[in-house]
């Protein structure tokens, strides 16, 4: 089933804020083998944890199955590096929608802010949603 075209412009906040703890950062860094030492910046892709939460909220609201989503593109622009102690939140906005060969190409922007409301970084993602086999193209 194609994604509802009226989605463009709608906002989906992540369900909860995330306190960046040393433990969370350490687990993320260990999973990707990122160098870790005191004072070392966080792995730059760590904010995906927030962006993914907002994307999952969007998928849940639209009843889109995660396993039919493939990540097509991701870019982050950082105002400042995220740090341990930050309390981050994310809000995803659907910025574009088009269909190619039965797949929905969903463009999104996720703004990641700290506890003061200041933007820490902005993520731009393209999600490729493939319709169920036999579904209308």
């Amino acid at each position: 089933m194609p994604v509802d075209p009226s989605l463009v412009g709608r906002e989906f906040p992540a369900p909860a804020s995330l306190t960046v703890t040393a433990e969370r950062v350490s687990a993320f860094a260990a999973a990707v083998g990122h160098p870790q030492s005191p004072g070392e910046p966080l792995p730059p892709t760590f904010p995906i944890v927030l962006a993914f939460g907002a994307m999952q909220a969007f998928l849940d609201a639209e009843r889109i199955d995660l396993h039919r989503i493939v990540h097509g593109e991701q870019r982050f622009a950082y105002v400042r590096p995220p740090e341990v102690g930050d309390e981050l939140t994310a809000t995803l906005t659907v910025t574009g929608l088009r269909q190619i060969g039965g797949a929905d190409i969903i463009a999104t922007t996720s703004e990641i802010t700290d506890e003061t409301g200041a933007v820490v970084c902005t993520g731009k993602a393209t999600l490729v949603h493939s319709a169920a086999p036999g579904g209308a193209a």
């Binding site: 910046p41 730059p44 097509g72 593109e73 870019r75």
Partner: peptide
């Protein structure tokens, strides 16, 4: 990038998959 730059601050990072 962290290894090449000695942990420099990243201001932009991205790619198409």
């Amino acid at each position: 990038v962290a290894e090449w730059t000695g942990g420099a601050e990243v201001v932009d990072l991205g790619a198409k998959f």
